[in-house]
Design a binder for these strands. Structure first.
Length: 923
RNA sequence: GCCGAAGUGGCGGAAUUGGUAGACGCGCACGACUCAAAAUCGUGUUCUUUCGGGAGUGUGGGUUCGAUUCCCACCUUCGGUACCA
């Protein structure tokens, strides 16, 4: 072969890999395993752009590297195939979402294969495949059949709980359950009807139906999880979201809040990612305190993290949604309170958010009694108190809480200062901690000690207890949509839910005539004809959310075709948890929390053997678009180059980045782009038409999308892979700019040139390398190996360039050098490496070639050129033998001509000689 | 507001535990080859300069013989989160 022909080579090797199942991963206890995982994509209609594969290329390099290093590597890919876009498209066109999804998946797979990624496609999973979602439904069933035991601190079968109920009721049970669960004994339990028993058990199950205040998105016709809502709008589509009470399946993730937060410490994740999860879980230590309502037989419990400020409580506040509001409102205030509550509840999330700094509230007419001081304070309703957090009741301490202070100031409520140092302050909330003042028995204590003292006192007196509170809420699991996993549940006439038995799974998605809600407002599944269980029981009509299928796919990959279990236990024992997981930050509080939850649950129940699914997590940065702009005169069909545009009255328009090179417009291509530009005139500068640029999101409407296909067509997959890595550290976001890719293309041609000359003559000879050649090679082996371990792929690419430049300079065509270099390069540029590897006479794929062993002897230097600095400024350099003693170096330096000139006859005060680093003279 | 990450040439970026700032590449300039162009190769390329130097890693200070690196304060950008009691 005369010239480097990427197209031919890449197709050849991609076929070879696929036909010979080179990347097939099978359990092999003889070999150490390594599991490299990419976050699996939702196959959108637009296909991949060059930003998507960034992480895939990085993980592919690690996978291939580990293979060369002797590991048994599991590196799978699949598709998160249920989802809104396909369904929205189905609503518009009537086409079944499965068809669109299949087409999109095919396109994605073609694109991924074109990049030469080393996936074991036999392990592919698609969440919308009934063979897959059978097991998603099975896991749902396991959750349904489990409760969380606070004593063993893990999930257990619900039968364990039932056995205890039969023996002694629930009075000694320490388990996670609904707040409103009442206490009963064995006699009461055993006396309950089956229906009643079932309803009680729902309060304990890890998945359960409940009336919950949810994020309802009318535009999408479904509820959304908290992490799917951003600033009051749906994350997908950007439609407004409102609060609504609906009956929903919920997941009791709160049972795992503590372990999810605590385990983070053990994980090799970025600090920012751990922080995001920690904040989302929002664990806070404090206590619950009971306030009796004056003249009423009601006790309100509030949660506070600052019980030390109890003597500063000057009023109390309820959330507008609080269920006792009617009872707590006196007749004289009824009208006002009702009006306020109505307004507050109807206010959309969005409005509430935009008015964060304004305060509003009304007095209920009732008073509560501070259990510590016996003081009567006013009870208010205000929407700054959230129903969903704590108990929906807040003790207000305006002297140490900003919001309380703002509220009290606005409504003229008293402020009582309880922390030392705040006595004379205008705004006492500036100081949050100190010595307590005006605080009864805790006066004089430090706030920290006072917290403990007050809790102790409250517990002794029986009106409070220490409590850990979490911000995280149970996750809404129902979606009022069609394109998702059916929930494997039917309802008997009494409304009690029952699981579809395991051997009848999967419960397949039935056909419907339209992908819209029914007339009566039921989800689309309500349209399915004759879709009833055993001919008489109604099925659950909501489907599972997107995160259901993605919460366990990493387990299914291990054993993708197992029909007896979601994953075989020997298999999961071997592959265990993911060693390296690469994906975007956007999944920090959704997918990464839910999958940890499900994994932990499956671990508790003994189905798998690792508590945490992802040991090391790396977030790849986003590749932003880099749009090009051109400037058209407002009144004429004439465009003006960037540098001259200020002399004219222009409007800015996009030019497709694919017809701009180094910000210079290809005018002919531009004229052909659109009919209205065919006759356009151009005002050039220095003979070129220069475009402006803007960095923004990559999208079709901005004409700044670049597809991997286009890059591969022109430069080849190896070039694209290396260039993407060369752009910078994998975790950094950066704009895509095709300009630099030529550098990598040149590198590949130079590499090729070490093997073949222009006529296609094979140049490689089996000769003994010289010291410089060994040095160039081993420097590269060392650097690249370190870089891959730390995922610094960008510097590896530089190193390869340096090495090939050096070998070119040395005119090195020696087999033993080039052979090793190819193995080191192969994870980055696998196709060209395979081809050249074969040209050296190898019959086996380079994928299994052993990684060269770095030998420090080859890069050993015996001399070093010391930079000589005088007062920290570099003045000259002197070569010294590395075994020369510092004292000798000092003496010789002081004799050096340049040094003497700079010393101007003065004697240096101090001479610092750092071996193999530097010499610094202080004058 | 709070939490986190990041600020280095015209551009992407490099610099191991504090030790020659700007590796590697793009772009640009000049040169070679060519009738010419492309490709390729070579040289130069932080700024400034009176060609001795001087300044320089967001800003201001500090520690040090020596700071892109460590400490303090601040500014900017990006990501997350937000009446969370």
């Amino acid at each position: 072969m005369a010239e480097y022909n990427h197209k031919e080579i890449e197709q050849k090797w991609q076929h070879y890999w696929a036909e010979n199942k080179i990347f097939k991963a099978e359990v092999n206890p003889e070999k150490p395993k390594f599991y490299v995982l990419d976050m699996f994509p939702y196959p959108s209609g637009a296909g991949l752009h060059v930003g998507h594969p960034l992480g895939y290329i990085g993980s592919d390099i690690v996978s291939r590297f580990k293979r060369n290093k002797g590991f048994n590597v599991l590196h799978p890919m699949g598709f998160d195939a249920f989802g809104l876009p396909a369904e929205q498209y189905a609503i518009q066109t009537g086409q079944h979402p499965a068809i669109t999804t299949e087409q999109n998946i095919k396109r994605y797979k073609d694109q991924l294969k074109g990049i030469g990624l080393s996936y074991d496609w036999d392990k592919e999973v698609q969440t919308c495949d009934p063979k897959y979602y059978k097991w998603t439904q099975w896991i749902f069933s396991q959750l349904y059949n489990s409760f969380y035991n606070n004593v063993s601190n893990k999930a257990e079968p619900i039968e364990n709980l039932m056995a205890v109920f039969e023996k002694e009721g629930n009075k000694n049970v320490k388990a996670i359950c609904d707040e409103d669960t009442s206490i009963f004994d064995a006699i009461q339990w055993n006396g309950l009807t089956e229906e009643k028993k079932a309803l009680v058990l729902l309060k304990y199950r890890l998945t359960y139906p409940a009336d919950a205040l949810v994020n309802w998105c009318p535009e999408l016709g479904t509820v959304l999880a908290n992490d799917e809502v951003k600033d009051g709008f749906s994350e997908r589509g950007g439609y407004p979201v409102e609060r609504k009470k609906m009956r929903q399946w919920m997941m009791r993730i709160t049972a795992y809040a503590d372990r999810l937060a605590g385990n983070l410490e053990k994980l090799n994740w970025s600090e920012s990612m751990k922080d995001m999860q920690t904040n989302w879980i929002g664990k806070s230590y404090g206590c619950e305190l009971d306030f009796k309502v004056a003249d009423k037989n009601i006790t309100l419990t509030c949660f506070t993290t600052r019980p030390d400020t109890i003597f500063g409580v000057t009023y109390m506040v309820l959330a507008p949604e609080h269920e006792l509001i009617d009872e707590l409102t006196t007749s004289t205030h009824k009208e006002e309170v009702d009006a306020y509550v109505q307004k507050a509840i109807n206010r959309s999330e969005r409005e509430r958010m935009s008015e964060v700094k304004t305060v509003s509230g009304v007095f209920t007419g009732s008073y509560v009694i501070n259990p510590f001081t016996k003081e009567k304070v006013q009870l208010w309703v205000a929407d700054y108190v959230l129903a969903g957090y704590g108990t929906g009741v807040v003790m207000a301490v305006p002297s140490s809480d900003d919001r309380d202070f703002r509220f009290a100031t606005y409504y003229g409520l008293p402020v009582k200062k309880v922390i030392g140092g705040t006595e004379d302050l205008e705004d006492p909330t500036e100081i949050k901690y100190g010595k307590m003042i005006n605080s009864g028995f805790i006066t004089g204590m430090e706030s920290k000690d006072a917290v403990l003292a007050t809790i102790e006192h409250a517990e002794k007196e029986g009106f409070g207890k220490a409590k850990i509170n979490y911000r995280i809420r149970d996750a809404v699991f129902s979606r009022q949509r069609y394109w998702g996993e059916p929930v494997p549940v039917y309802f008997t006439e009494d409304g009690v839910p029952h699981l579809i038995p395991e051997d009848e799974l999967p419960l397949e998605l039935p056909p419907v005539d339209e992908y819209l809600p029914t007339e009566s407002g039921e989800p689309p599944l309500g349209r399915a004809k004759d879709w009833v269980y055993k001919g008489k029981y109604n099925y659950e009509l909501t489907t599972m959310p997107g995160w259901a299928g993605s919460s366990w796919y990493f387990l299914r990959y291990m054993d993708a075709t197992n029909e007896k279990a979601f994953v075989g236990s020997e298999v999961v024992k071997y592959w265990n948890s993911v060693d390296l997981y690469i994906g975007g930050t956007e999944h920090a509080t959704g997918h990464l929390l839910y999958s940890r939850f499900w994994n932990m649950f499956l671990f508790d129940r003994g189905f798998i053997f690792h508590e945490e699914p992802f040991q090391k997590l790396v977030n790849q940065g986003m590749i932003q678009g880099r749009s090009n702009t051109v400037y058209k005169l407002k009144t004429e069909n004439t465009f003006v180059s960037l540098g001259l545009k200020d002399q004219y009255d222009t409007i800015e328009l996009y030019a497709d980045v694919n017809m701009v090179y180094n910000d210079k417009l290809d005018i002919d291509a531009f004229k052909n782009w659109r009919a209205e530009y065919a006759e356009a005139k151009f005002i050039l500068e220095d003979g070129d038409f220069k475009c402006g640029f803007v960095v923004e999101k990559m999208s079709k409407s901005k004409y700044n999308t670049v597809t991997p296909d286009a890059m591969i067509e022109k430069y080849g997959a190896d070039c694209l892979r290396m260039y993407e890595m060369f752009l910078g550290p994998i975790e950094l976001s950066k704009p895509w700019n095709t300009h630099g890719i030529d550098g990598v293309a040149k590198f590949l041609r130079k590499l090729w040139g070490l093997f073949f000359d222009y006529e296609g003559n094979f140049l490689v000879k089996d000769e003994k390398p010289r010291a410089e050649e060994y040095k160039a090679l081993h420097k590269t082996i060392q650097k690249v190996e370190q870089d891959i371990e730390s995922l610094s792929f960008n510097t590896s690419v530089s190193e390869f360039m340096i090495c090939v430049n050096a070998l070119n300079q040395l005119k090195c065509h020696k087999k033993s050098i080039l052979e090793n270099l190819l193995v080191v390069l192969s994870p980055f540029a696998p196709h060209i490496s395979e081809e050249l590897w074969q040209s050296l006479g190898h019959e086996q794929s380079i994928i299994n070639a052993p990684y060269p062993v770095f030998n420090a002897a080859f890069i050993q230097e015996d001399e070093y050129e010391y930079p000589i600095m005088i007062n920290g400024k570099l003045r000259t350099k002197i070569m010294f033998s590395l075994d020369k003693q510092p004292k000798e170096i000092e003496l010789e330096t002081l004799k050096n001509e340049t040094v003497l000139k700079w010393l101007e006859g003065k004697q240096p005060k101090k001479v610092i000689v750092v071996p193999k680093k530097i010499v610094n003279l202080v004058v």
